[in-house]
Each structure stands twice: as structure tokens, then as C-alpha cells.
Simulated assay, not measured.
Amino acid sequence: MADMDQQPREDLSGEAACRKIRELAKDARMCMLVTDVTDYPGDVRPMAIQKVEDDGTFWFLSSGASEKNGDIAHDARVILTIQNDEKYEYLALSGVASVHTDRVTIDKYWTDYANAWFDGKDDPRITVICVKPVDGHYWQTHSGKVMSFIKTSLSAITGSKTSDGGVDGDLKV
């Protein structure tokens, strides 16, 4: 197994943190959204990502009657987790959410995929959740899934400590 104490670490802030968020989230279509974070274990559910902006802001469509919208109205602090198992890339973000109901924002983030949950773009239940990350942590393997598996397997067989070619670090947006 890779020696986590020797794995390269790269903490990022500002624009560099935003770039890393965009890089790791660009291929993600889904993530886990945690609301009601003060009441352990919180409420966790999968969400379809509509868009990730240049500043790392995430956008989601949601029903105005959903529990998550109520949770956000009560406490806007949320957690997002994203994983790309193909590349062994992972992202955990803490942020602040807001709910938008204006037609311009709904039109901007609407996709036909949302028809599975709503009765078209004019469904009065549609809201848009915006999550602005504040901080987080990322884990990224540069050599990819296959090479990481080979390196980890070799380490397990030989007992040697080897890097899986990854890097991790804190993010401060």
C-alpha cells in the first residue's frame, strides 16, 4: 500500500483551488449533497450536477417542496462529495447553499434530463440550488486506475512502500 505520510501534498487556495475543483468535477454528472449538517448524520442524497462555474460554484435543480430545500432554508451550510472511480479522483467540499426560484436562473440551468423529475421547464415546483464552496479536500491519482492498482499490488506483494502517483491537499476557495 502507498505510504500516505509520504504521498505528495499540495494545498491550494484562491484561483488555484477553483481550478482544481473544476478539473476534478468536470466529468462528474452526480455528487452527494449533505444538508442539515448540524444534526448527525445529516441528510445525504445524490444530486445531478447541472453546471460547475469557473469560481467552483455548483448548480442543481430541485423541487421547492423537497426536504433539502427546507434544510437549506434552515441552515445554508452543506457538504458535497464527488468521486471519479475511473481516475481515482475524489473531492469533498464544504460550502454555503442558496435556493433560486427566478425564471432566468431556472432557464439557464434547465436540461431535458430534468424532465425525469419535473413536468417540463414550467413546472412550478422547480428551484435551482447554488452551492458556493468555502473549503474542502481533494485526492487525485495522476497515473490512473490501472497503474495505481499495479503499484498498490506490487507494494502488497513485496511489502515495499510505494507511491500510487497521487497527490492530495486542502482547498480554500
Rank of each mutant, 00 (worst) to 15 (best):
V104R: 14
N115V: 08
I72D: 02
L80Q: 02
L80T: 02
V78S: 04
T111H: 14
H74I: 01
V96Q: 10
R77K: 08
S98F: 01
A114D: 13
L93W: 08
V96D: 05
N69L: 04
H74F: 13
D119T: 03
D107Q: 15
P124R: 07
A76M: 04
W117N: 03
W117K: 06
R77Q: 11
T101G: 15
L80G: 01
V99C: 06
T127H: 05
T105E: 03
L93F: 09
D112W: 10
D75V: 03
Q83E: 14
V128A: 08
A92G: 14
H100Y: 10
I126N: 03
Y113R: 11
R125E: 06
A97D: 06
T105R: 13
V131A: 09
S98M: 03
I82A: 04
I79P: 07
S94E: 15
T105F: 10
D112E: 12
I72V: 00
K87L: 13
K108C: 11
G120I: 10
P124Y: 05
T111D: 13
I106F: 01
V96T: 13
A97Q: 03
K121G: 08
D112C: 15
T127W: 02
I106Q: 02
K121S: 07
L91C: 05
D102M: 15
I79W: 03
F118C: 07
D123G: 05
W117E: 01
T105H: 11
K108W: 05
D102K: 14
A116F: 02
N115Y: 12
Y113H: 14
A97V: 02
D71M: 02
C130W: 08
W117R: 11
T101F: 09
H100C: 06
A73K: 12
I126M: 06
K132P: 00
A97F: 00
I82R: 06
D102I: 15
C130N: 11
S94L: 14
F118D: 09
D102R: 15
D85W: 09
T81P: 05
W110S: 00
D75R: 05
S94H: 15
D85P: 03
L91E: 06
I82D: 01
R103I: 06
A116M: 02
N115S: 07
